[in-house]
Design a protein around this nucleic acid. Structure first.
Lengths: 196, 196
DNA sequence: CCAAAGCATTGAACTATGACAAGAAATTAA
DNA sequence: TTAATTTCTTGTCATAGTTCAATGCTTTGG
């Protein structure tokens, strides 16, 4: 019956240990939500009022520069969280867009719900700190790769690290994630295909 | 008398509210340390056992790719923290180097001290979460700039955002931070000088 | 099942940046 | 102060990646 929450409960239990009752409170603060493909959950300028845990589906977070070029910050799939943490916490206008790439099943934690949670069970701070820390590690690693490695290598690494994502999302999105043009990614792939 | 701790106490009090006693416990867990210029505080492969708050001086964090090229992740000056968070928390071998660029006065928080602190005063979780969050915002922003903006623009933005750092550290370090060669930075500067 | 829209591929011309080499300037140490 | 070392500059040539335009391929929705 509680199958909806199984995954997320396991997720938080990996970060810290919580009692049955604490987990129940946590679950009660989440709202389940079904969202259609290609829906914008957040646009630049809006204030982000959610952290979303993905039960099913795929989401991208991106931002747009002056010229309208999109840079993808994250692909999120099952068992990941998406949000604009800066906007969410400071309750300031976001610089990001968050868009579903597939039909999604989400568990939503609003700002108020999170505050209630942390007030009642301060140990949950740890769960969220770990989330942010992991995110930082990944982002730092990506920054270094972007600076130090050629596009070909970054693409190969992406394929190894996120094989499932690579098959679910369109190539031009992957290009926008790697920081190269869609055309150039296509050429990289062509070369890889002939070489072996 | 407690002037050494003034700055850092203000720092944490901006993140959350703490009582006099709590702050005293916090201070008692810090160790002051004086370090010479050009000292490696951490090398790749070592386990990072500290988070250091800078009272005085300047430090760089960097990593090295296969070819020996250095990518600078952070310049830290007064009122900043440095550490390899991943290595520190998981107690795993670091991928980073941390090196003083000037003679430094530091306040060191060891792993054990931090655990004691968090066990006794869980609200401190918040302080560290905020630190990590800020770091994430800055890193995301840098990633996007690196991908979407030409070197010239990144350099100008760096000068605006960190004017003091720009004057304290050698140019080839700034180049390694921006992700360009030292020679190319020099050419950018030459062009900027003639244009106005 | 077809039309329309979106997506991927390819080639040609262009551009930002890198690599190397050599010399000038600045800092450091003795 | 001088020598030694490190840092910065400038030029030439090489290259990874971009932009644009044309073409064919999928996917989607009616």
């Amino acid at each position: 019956m509680q199958s909806t929450f199984n995954a997320i409960n396991q997720y938080v239990n990996k970060c810290a240990v919580f009692s049955e009752t604490e987990i129940q409170l946590f679950d009660s603060l989440l709202q389940q939500k079904t969202v259609k493909k290609k829906t914008m959950l957040l646009r630049e300028g809006e204030i982000c009022n959610f952290e979303a845990y993905i039960l099913k589906g795929c989401i991208r977070t991106f931002c747009m520069d002056e010229n309208g070029a999109e840079v993808i910050l994250q692909f999120a799939v099952e068992d990941w969280w998406v949000s604009d943490i800066a906007s969410f916490h400071e309750q300031t206008p976001s610089k990001l867009y968050i868009e579903t790439l597939e039909n999604c099943e989400l568990l939503i934690l609003t700002h108020e719900a999170k505050e209630e949670l942390l007030a009642k069970i301060p140990q949950f701070e740890r769960v969220f700190r770990l989330m942010v820390q992991r995110n930082l590690s990944v982002t730092q690693n990506r920054l270094v790769n972007t600076i130090a490695k050629p596009a070909h290598d970054r693409y190969v690494e992406f394929l190894e690290r996120y094989p499932s994502v690579a098959q679910r999302v369109a190539q031009h999105y992957i290009a926008a994630y790697l920081g190269i043009s869609a055309e150039f990614l296509s050429k990289i792939r062509a070369k890889m295909a002939t070489k072996r």
